[in-house]
Design a protein around this nucleic acid. Structure first.
Lengths: 208, 208, 208, 208
DNA sequence: AATGCTCCAGCTGAGC
DNA sequence: GCTCAGCTGGAGCATT
């Protein structure tokens, strides 16, 4: 009776288009959902093993970010810290290095040599803040190795021998954490989420 | 007293209910939108003045967060840093203080005093890392004041005299930034967003 | 050198800008949140009175949409229905009028007079489908009034005397619902959400 | 117990866990993104072929919804329509069938036989509103077939012979649209988005 | 200027 | 009952 779309295979009709496209999309959506479930499973597994899913998510995000993403993130972080600092809201955390670097962009030629003002107990310029980028890969590697070594030897993370601003400070930290995360047979307690951070009072320190 | 008569106006009919409730909600939504627009204006103004809107948003968020929110945020930050450090992904930024604190929760009784290893150029334990919470409000205030003073005197932010781990380090930073943000008659360049971080090209990575 | 920025009131410093802007935004955000809570309360009240919050939300959205929004929405609705129809997925709901209108844009001059095929029980062209826009405001109003009247007289909603495609059909419905929603002293059961449509089984139709 | 060593290779260390989990998640996220891109491509293709992406999205959603989802959606739709009708906001679109069905749940025993009021031009009860569910699959299929036939014969969509409320009305519509979407060698104009089909108004779509 | 993409917050449904 | 994760809607941003 009715001639269907008979011979033309190359001219898809409107409803065929809709059918095939929607089917294809449905299939893709299902695959996507399946993968999303896998991801969820991975986080659940991490959680069950004692890791903090939220922190792990940060790691994932960091791993996936491009160079320009990283640059943007760092810039925003630096500016936020500067803004917060200017309001006295750092609440205990000093400026990060990228914020410091940024504030030094104009190298501040004024060099007023402050004499002693007897600032109460300030460790008087304890170390020459080593300029950035002056260390070779080898030196960085050595710092990292020493961090691992020190960790194994029982040194604490706060015993990092490198002063703030020294790039090797981060390397030592990395070595330390790497060792700490490798020697134990189980996840250290301090790597787990505090069971119930129900917070509340949260005992302020000097801040604000 | 009043019998259950029918002409009572106090028995709202279904459609009156719908009408009054929907009208009320519409009105509220409009108010909400108006305020949202005001907020948007504020950010636009900030931007036009040279501030970075995104960083300002962080400040706002910080100001609005409760004590428990802050505690949660800090915990996640600390754990993320630890995880990143263990993977060697700190990319230059050392662990923050809260991460360090967290890793010291079990005070690590093992105290192998490793002396010289001839670690290449490590500033040998330059300052005794002062224990947290040992400083009086007065001392903190002094550190902040000195930061402001030093800033005015031309000292750079990287000349912070307090070692990493010393709570006064953040206070000095605050004072410094406060001064830097107050003396100038205009917003410092380093407080502005880099004009066009359009990036992208920036060292392509493999990332698909 | 310069003590503080004491005198200059007209030159807001960077940190003053940040402080005032962030404070202002925080205040606005709080107001916004307060209103959002009011809205939530309104929905909760609606729910407690037996109305369906989700459906009410649709009403609110409809009330707030502009003419162009409405046009867009209708177009998408019409197209979706057409696409669904072409796939045989209408599952019981005939095309809406705007979909029909849209499909008649080219007035389809071809008028093949189909001879009788004795289509099983099809009510043979029961009414002349009245062209759109041919009714006066008065007639529309009369239809609405009659709907209300009929409702009060006990007629059911399915007894709408106007055929599909007649604009007065909607007006009669409106009158009917208006009356139904006004006469009762309480919200009709059919206006409430079915207590727990947890369903799932839900009388499999051809769907899926 | 065991002093310090770690003999077991099957006990992954903390950092190994983090590394493997985060890598796995990164990989999954990339796969997910890849699929999301495919979906985006499919929509773009649909658009380039003259289909409305938004409407297509509705179709996809409909295809993916479970029976209970569909039930919920229909309930909300019905209630919204009822609420809108009671406010006189139907703006031309009569109540859908599910709204009518819902309002008849209590079968309304009151049957006041209204006498003639000479309602201006109302088509006097043009057809017996056929009760739902009284039609066999065969009859439904016949209605669908007739819709297709009628479409091919040049009948317009508004010539649906089945009255509102008759389940075969939707079936006829489906048949009609199916035919309309199949006979043409190109997508009908009324199936395209009106205002902005900017690129290629069905320009040579020879490919594929 | 309009549009599409991306990100984020707020809301909703599940789960302990 | 509260929390939490997923999700949808909206806002900002880059683009054409």
């Amino acid at each position: 009776m009715i001639s269907k779309n008979s011979q033309t295979t190359d001219a898809p009709t409107a409803r065929e288009l809709i059918a095939s496209l929607s089917d294809r999309i449905v299939r893709l959506e299902e695959e996507k959902k399946s993968i999303a479930d896998d991801i969820k499973d991975a986080y659940a597994e991490a959680k069950s093993l004692g890791l903090d899913a939220k922190a792990l998510k940060v790691v994932v995000k960091r791993k996936m970010e491009s160079a320009s993403d990283a640059a943007k993130r760092k810039e925003t972080e630096a500016l936020s810290e500067i803004y917060l600092a200017s309001l006295g809201m750092l609440d205990g955390t000093p400026l990060g290095d990228s914020a410091r670097d940024r504030m030094e962009q104009p190298p501040a030629p004024a060099e007023d040599d402050r004499d002693d003002r007897g600032a109460s107990g300030a460790s008087e310029d304890p170390a020459p803040p080593p300029a950035r980028g002056v260390f070779t890969d080898e030196e960085m590697h050595a710092a990292r190795a020493r961090g691992a070594e020190d960790a194994t030897a029982g040194k604490r993370i706060i015993d990092n021998p490198f002063v703030a601003g020294d790039p090797r400070r981060a390397a030592w930290d990395e070595g330390h954490c790497q060792a700490k995360g490798s020697d134990g047979m189980d996840i250290p307690d301090s790597w787990r989420r505090a069971s119930k951070p129900k917070g509340g009072s949260a005992a302020g320190e000097g801040g604000q």
